[in-house]
Each structure stands twice: as structure tokens, then as C-alpha cells.
């Protein structure tokens, strides 16, 4: 039987470690090479308000009905992306986005593309089971 003191000690120690780890992450230096400009920031809010994540992923996190858009800016032209934003597709509805909203979302996707690579096949796999960005 573990004594109450020991149990309390474990709980407090683990909680202190958890809080320190949390603080370390909140105040860690940014990993981004290019910060989001005002238009990209607006685009991010639109991404949330239109709930784009229900169908699309960023870094493989999000819905599965549409493709991952992390690096869409690198693989498709601006015109191609704008056409989808303007008219949707046979599955994606037309959200009646204004020209300003379309530009903001495009700028957000441009910014996301600068943050890293998401295609699973591009990751480097190491013998200890870890992976790293290409």
C-alpha cells in the first residue's frame, strides 16, 4: 500500500512538471521564419469562422472530405485556389466570399506554406523510430 504522503508527493511533483512544461511551450521562441501579416491573420480568422477545418487539414489535422491545404500554395496556382474559393466544387459549397475575403484566405494559405512541409512521403525516417521535416 502506497502511503498518502508519497501519493501526494507524486501528484504535486507531476503537476509542477506539467505546469513548467506548459509555460515552456507558451513562451518558447517561434519556429516560424516568416510571421503572419495582417491579411494572413484575417485569413486565419476566416478559416475558423467558415469552419474550413471540417473538411480540410493543416499538417494532417482536420477533416478528410477535402485535401490537406498546408502546401497547396506551392503546388497550385493562385488562380486555381481562387476558383475554388469563388465557386466551390461539386462537394464544396459556394460560400459567397467577397473578393477581400478570398484574398485574405489566399494570403493565409501562402503564409501556412512558409511554416513547413506536410506531405507524409517527404518526411525523413530515422532508425530510432523518429521522423523529421525534410
Amino acid at each position: 500500500m502506497i502511503s498518502f504522503r508519497y501519493k501526494l508527493f507524486l501528484l504535486v511533483t507531476l503537476s509542477a512538471a506539467f505546469l513548467s512544461y506548459s509555460a515552456l511551450l507558451y513562451f518558447a521562441d517561434s519556429k516560424e521564419t516568416q510571421p503572419a501579416n495582417a491579411l494572413a491573420q484575417k485569413g486565419k480568422m476566416l478559416w475558423q469562422q467558415k469552419n474550413c477545418t471540417a473538411c480540410h487539414q493543416l499538417y494532417g489535422l482536420g477533416g478528410h472530405l477535402g485535401p490537406d491545404l498546408t502546401n497547396v500554395y506551392a503546388t497550385r496556382t493562385e488562380e486555381h485556389i481562387t476558383t475554388y474559393l469563388k465557386y466551390g466544387s461539386p462537394v464544396m459549397p459556394d460560400y459567397n466570399l467577397s473578393a477581400e475575403e478570398q484574398t485574405a484566405l489566399l494570403e493565409f494559405l501562402k503564409y501556412v506554406n512558409t511554416t513547413g512541409v506536410a506531405h507524409p512521403a517527404s518526411f525523413l525516417k530515422h532508425t530510432n523510430g523518429t521522423i523529421s521535416q525534410p
Binding site: L25, Y26, S30, P35, A36, Q41, K44, L61, T115, G116
Partner: peptide
């Protein structure tokens, strides 16, 4: 908090944490 929100990688890290 805008400072966190506008850093996508940090924001997603905290979100999934």
C-alpha cells in the same frame, strides 16, 4: 490571445496539447 493565435505552429502545438 493574438500573440499566440498569429503564430500558427505555436497555436497548433498548444491546441493539441
Amino acid at each position: 490571445i493574438p500573440a499566440l493565435r498569429n503564430d500558427l505552429i505555436k497555436d497548433m502545438t498548444v491546441q493539441w496539447k
